[in-house]
Design a protein around this nucleic acid. Sequence first.
DNA 1: GGTTGTGAACATATTCACAGCA
DNA 2: TGCTGTGAATATGTTCACAACC
Lengths: 270, 270
Amino acid sequence: MATGRTHRPATRSRGIPEATVARLPLYLRALTALSERSVPTVSSEELAAAAGVNSAKLRKDFSYLGSYGTRGVGYDVEYLVYQISRELGLTQDWPVVIVGIGNLGAALANYGGFASRGFRVAALIDADPAMAGKPVAGMPVQHTDELEKIISENGVSIGVIATPAGAAQQVSERLIAAGVTSILNFAPTVLSVPEGVDVRKVDLSIELQILAFHEQRKAGEGAAAAAEAAGGESAALPLPQPAATRAPATAAAPPRKSGPEGDVPAVMPA
Amino acid sequence: MATGRTHRPATRSRGIPEATVARLPLYLRALTALSERSVPTVSSEELAAAAGVNSAKLRKDFSYLGSYGTRGVGYDVEYLVYQISRELGLTQDWPVVIVGIGNLGAALANYGGFASRGFRVAALIDADPAMAGKPVAGMPVQHTDELEKIISENGVSIGVIATPAGAAQQVSERLIAAGVTSILNFAPTVLSVPEGVDVRKVDLSIELQILAFHEQRKAGEGAAAAAEAAGGESAALPLPQPAATRAPATAAAPPRKSGPEGDVPAVMPA
DNA sequence: GGTTGTGAACATATTCACAGCA
DNA sequence: TGCTGTGAATATGTTCACAACC
């Protein structure tokens, strides 16, 4: 059951636009790097370049947070780091559980930039009894039976799902019932969650398919555009040949519309 | 020196809006599931629910592809699978290389939904000589020295970067010089690439920080909203206590603006 | 009757361009 | 003079609501 939606309906939480929120971590990372190099101030232009956006966008983004810059000078790096951290809620430490300790879960557990950036891995959880007790990233894996206890004892409100697709919905339900209200989902499924729960998804094959779409387009028509502005270190891009440049070797004739007999090409074997 | 941007400037490739392109894989996945259950047709309403979007959006998205539905009936599942696959360029097989075979790279290599969905792992590449020859996901890891040869011999145009952040820029340059024009970047860095090259990034800590932002907001004000529509199996959400409900235990007094002396709170240890 | 396809209305996001201030 | 902060202009995305059609 639960026909609920997946992303909360863009509530424009307090005034800061979603698009801006999504870029704050980027700015924060760039600022942290500057801070480590003891750079005292940056201009919007410099910071924007470091974060990979344009400066008008960055200035507008910052304007939602307040007036933290100095005209004619730029932004104080340390001060901005603090303000953005606070805005993102990183001045407190968020305990996080990772459910599903396969290759991916282990990779996530080992990910360094975790603890350092406002998050703490409270537990690693897996359904396989054989995994229980085994140390991953210096931490014993715990069995799914303990899930509810772990969540409530540690006050966990953010869960990461790295299970197979089939288990994800059920895991999310248990997490939510136990008190989790934000989920980062690596499993390739749409999660149905009640209102008030945030879900973000990370999906390899979706990303690849989006890239494939643009690749196809490049190969198709203006295959010149790629080489065009190739200034820099790359000498003469050899214009890649993606297997067949644009001849669908699979799939013979596209079935004519409204003919659901069944002789349709078997794209997508499963 | 490449001051280039990261995402291509939303070229509205051929007419299909980016936002629509980003959802096509979602529809495709839902349709594939229906196809496996031999469901012959779906309404926009049903399919939208399965994909986690609303039906108006779905219909508008499909309208960019053409008129593939039948009024009063719905969409023919097989036919739509074919059309979307074709639109995404999945009727051909894209060879892909994965660079950086650590935990994450291995996880990606083992990801099943790879081969089945229009992509083929052409090679696994790692800089560590000790890895060379070792089989991962039934495939020998090859050394970075071979990168250029692998790319050109296999006509690879899509590369996946799963290296540490420090190596990512350089790897991307080599990939691009060798002919890659689309990159999926898992390393937490902004890549500078020449125009014509597409980069998509997947970044754990950015996603977590976005979730933290919304979490903080929930905890702050209307902490009631979460419990509100909690219909279903979850009995009485216990309103999680995220460490400190809203008291920045770290960071004492926010440094006053334009005071770059250095007594700024040490948020973000690194 | 039921469902698609789509203009029109609305909402969000980006970019421009410049006034205002250090 | 140099840079921020922001209104206004534009572009993109979403939703509504209904005519067209099966």
